[in-house]
Every structure is written in structure tokens, then in C-alpha cells.
């Protein structure tokens, strides 16, 4: 029996869009990374000069280091909180539904609004520290030792609800029979979470982790508005360094080199995560299905 498939031509618009708005810019960025271009005139071909500069550029190394710390910390902060919140809000009780709606509010705010909100709240002269004495000596945005943690906090505050929503959806899909069986076996509340909910959510953990890590790797707007990389360079993570190089220093060639590196790192990061967690060999956890 031959099945009549739709003509491959139907895929053309999608391919065209992908080609023009995703593939082509990537190719152009790779080309620009091999040139020197100040945005005026024609790019001058340099070969691998930008790449050797990247290898010896201490500022780039530091910004990548900050990005690594940032990725690890945002993941470590967001995952447990989002998981617990998601599992908790999956319950059908009315109080949970109301409270979850409140918890998910950050999801409705734009990144720019969130960054401005926290910038004003944490202002040492006019923000919270003015009324809460205990906070007065902490330079949330002004102390180079602390500023990066402040950014981690703000980014986590913004994205925890999104990931909690992922976990909530996944947790609601866990068959009730599993809990019933666990209950019969005498599992405690904690035991049911640990031995039923958590294993059932493992693939959601992988998905959410990849989203978090790739998202953190390319986080830009929050930092730009909240600290602009400051104080000094304390929060200048790699995407911001790319932006400063390209759009403040107008070294488009070198900025493209950093962009290509970020592209490679992002792809590698998600591939490695999938590999390590054996995402491809996904299988059902339930017998008989």
C-alpha cells in the first residue's frame, strides 16, 4: 500500500525562513569572524587572526569564566526550586492553584521590566536597603564580589516559574496508579516524591536543564540593564563582552568570533547533556506501555 504524502514543496516556506533567518546569518557570522570590520566600508579579510587573538585575550577568558560560573549557579539554584514548586503545584488543591498563580507572575513580566525593577529595588540610596537596615552594608550591584550573585538571583527569580510550569505539566502526567501502589507499599510522602515523582520527571529535568544552560549561556538583556557588566567588569559575561566589542567598540569581526564561539559552546553543551543523560534512549517508565 502506498501512502500519499504531501509534496515536499510544502516544506519550502519553512526551509526558506530557516535558511534566511537562521542558517544564513550563521554563515555570515563565521565569515565575519575571519575579518576586521568596523561597520563602515568593506570587511577586510584577516584569516585566523581574530581566533588567535581570542586565545590570548584575558578579558575574553575572564568573561567565559564568569559565564561558566553563571551557568552552574543558575542551574543549581533554579532546578531544585523549580522542581519542588512544580511538583507541589501539580496538586489539585484549591490553595495550591491560587498560590501557583501568584508564583508564576514573573513569567508575565518582560525581562527589561524585571531588570529595571530589581535595579531600583536594590539601589543602595533609594531602594530596599534604605528601609531594611540589615541590607545596608551589602553592595548588591556595587560590590564586584557580590554583583554576579545578584544577577544569578534575578535571572533565577525570572525563570523559576517557567521551569516550575514544565515540571507541573510533567508531574500531572504521572499516572495515579503509581502513587496508589506506593501508598499500599507504605511509602511516606517523602518516599513517594523520591521514588515516584522524581524518577518520572527525569526527562523533564533533562529538557529543563538544557533550556537553562543554553539560556544562561546567552543571557544578555538582564545583565545589560541591571549592571551593564559592572561594577568594572565583575558581571561582564561572554554575551555582554561580545556586545561591548561589537556595538560599543565597533569591532564587528572580533565580536563575530566571540559569537561563533558561543554558538559552538551552546551546541556542544546541549549535545553533551543529551549524551550524558542518554536522552536518545528515552523509554517509558511504565510497564506494559
Amino acid at each position: 500500500m502506498t501512502t500519499v504524502r504531501p509534496s515536499p514543496a510544502y516544506a519550502l516556506p519553512a526551509f526558506a525562513f530557516f535558511g534566511i533567518f537562521a542558517a544564513l546569518p550563521m554563515v555570515l557570522v563565521v565569515y565575519l569572524s575571519l575579518t576586521a570590520w568596523d561597520g563602515l566600508g568593506t570587511p577586510a579579510f584577516l584569516g585566523l587572526e581574530n581566533w588567535s587573538r581570542l586565545l590570548t585575550d584575558a578579558a575574553a577568558r575572564e568573561s567565559l569564566g564568569r559565564t561558566a560560573v553563571f551557568i552552574v549557579l543558575t542551574w543549581a539554584v533554579q532546578t531544585p526550586v523549580a522542581l519542588l514548586m512544580g511538583a507541589w503545584s501539580a496538586g489539585r488543591q484549591r490553595n495550591r492553584a491560587i498560590l501557583s498563580a501568584l508564583f508564576f507572575i514573573p513569567l508575565l513580566l518582560s525581562t527589561a521590566a524585571i531588570a529595571l525593577l530589581w535595579q531600583v529595588l536594590l539601589d543602595p540610596n533609594f531602594g530596599l536597603p534604605q528601609s531594611v537596615t540589615a541590607l545596608q552594608s551589602i553592595g548588591f550591584l556595587g560590590d564586584p564580589e557580590i554583583a554576579l550573585y545578584t544577577v544569578v538571583f534575578v535571572v533565577s527569580w525570572q525563570y523559576i516559574p517557567f521551569h516550575a510550569l514544565l515540571y507541573q505539566g510533567a508531574a500531572r502526567n504521572i499516572p495515579v496508579v503509581l502513587y496508589d501502589a506506593a501508598l499500599i507499599d507504605g511509602a511516606s510522602r517523602w518516599g513517594r516524591f523520591w521514588f515516584v515523582t522524581l524518577p518520572q520527571l527525569r526527562y523533564t529535568v533533562v529538557t529543563s536543564s538544557i533550556l537553562m544552560m543554553v539560556g544562561s549561556l546567552t543571557t544578555f538583556d538582564t545583565v545589560l540593564i541591571l549592571t551593564n557588566g559592572g561594577p568594572g567588569t565583575a558581571t561582564r559575561i561572554a554575551p555582554l563582552y561580545m556586545y561591548d566589542t561589537g556595538f560599543a567598540g565597533f569591532q564587528m569581526g572580533y565580536a563575530s568570533t566571540i559569537a561563533v564561539l558561543l554558538l559552538v559552546l551552546g551546541t556542544a553543551l546541549s549535545l553533551i547533556t543529551m549524551k550524558v543523560t542518554r536522552f536518545r534512549s528515552m523509554q517509558s517508565q511504565q510497564e506494559g506501555q
Partner: peptide, 21 residues
């Protein structure tokens, strides 16, 4: 001791002067 977190665009420094702080 906290000038590193004071901004101009959001009016920080100007307000400090105007309020006599």
C-alpha cells in the same frame, strides 16, 4: 562607599544632590 551602584540615567546621583545627601 556605594558610588559603584549609583546610576545617572535612573536619577540616582542627581537626587542625592537635590535631597542634600
Amino acid at each position: 562607599d556605594n558610588f559603584a551602584s549609583v546610576g545617572y540615567d535612573i536619577g540616582g546621583a542627581s537626587t542625592l544632590l537635590a535631597q542634600g545627601r
